[in-house]
């Protein structure tokens, strides 16, 4: 009997999850279709890029710097055992461009801007701003959701580039200034090992995909939040947890695809 109950509960959970997936896809299709058919308000998009960027930038700068420094420290001590510390810049650059930059930026973006997006849209539901728009014959999907989505998709790759630059600077500081690695060796090895198309661009492709997914989920959870304080809290938590797990899963799949495995 307990096994049956567990199977039923699992089945019900599965149905709820599948319904949620379907509804989120319909939400995406609906707001993109309605927005593409109408004039895009670029002023709103750029205002949101500015807002999302300024929200996330301090976190990205601090995290990028420290992650670059940690990678340099760990890498130096490991490579030193093999007498290969000169390859530290290669390790640092490839790690940052291919993996750490896009993944860490997306995770930090979810925690900072993604949760804020969900909370903002959820609160607009709580305070009846979204229903008010509908009654005023203003489509909230076109007026509120789409500009935020587009700006989020634009912001994530830009933030990834900033993260990459700061992480490299952090690594340079540790490797050259602190550990005494030769500055010429550091930069020349990096330049020789990093390919723009396969390393830098692939990282940006990843961050673009992360931006598409993360902003979609953040807006969906906000828009469908139960219009109470607890409902908005739950929606925000869902955004952070589901997006974070999806980022890691998608990263694995895209890495396997890009490496041709």
């Amino acid at each position: 009997m307990n096994a049956v109950t567990a199977i039923v509960a699992f089945g019900q959970w599965g149905i709820i999850v599948m319904c949620g997936c379907g509804q989120s896809v319909l939400f995406l299709e609906k707001f993109i279709r309605r927005s593409i058919l109408n004039r895009c308000r670029w002023r709103d998009v750029f205002a949101q890029v500015y807002l999302l960027g300024t929200h996330s930038l301090p976190v990205i700068l601090v995290a990028g710097g420290f992650i670059g420094m940690v990678v340099a420290l760990q890498g130096f001590h490991t490579l030193q055992k093999f007498g290969a510390e000169a390859q530290l810049s290669q390790l640092l650059a490839l790690s940052v461009f291919r993996e750490l930059g896009p993944v860490m930026t997306a995770l930090l973006y979810v925690g900072r801007a993604g949760s804020a997006l969900t909370a903002e849209i959820g609160l607009m539901q709580v305070t009846e701003q979204i229903p008010a728009m509908e009654v005023m014959a203003i489509d909230p999907l076109r007026r509120v959701i789409f500009p935020r989505y587009l700006s989020g998709v634009i912001s994530v790759p830009i933030l990834t580039l900033i993260f990459d630059a700061v992480a490299l600077w952090g690594g340079y500081y540790i490797a050259v200034i602190w550990l005494g690695l030769d500055v010429g060796t550091f930069w020349s090895n990096m330049k020789a090992s990093v390919l723009f198309n396969t390393d830098v661009l692939n990282g940006l492709y990843k961050s673009f995909i992360f931006g598409l997914v993360v902003n979609w989920l953040a807006l969906y959870h906000g828009y469908t939040a139960i219009p109470t304080a607890a409902g908005v809290g739950l929606a925000t938590t869902r955004t952070v947890v589901i997006s974070s797990l999806l980022i890691l899963m998608l990263d694995f799949m895209m890495t396997a695809f890009m490496l041709g495995v």
Binding site: T127, E128, Q129, P131, A132, E134, V135, M136, A137
Partner: peptide, 16 residues
């Protein structure tokens, strides 16, 4: 049709 309808919400629903 909604353009011909106005509504005053309980919470006022002003855009913050």
């Amino acid at each position: 049709m909604r353009k011909k309808i106005g509504m005053l919400f309980q919470s006022s629903a002003l855009f913050s």
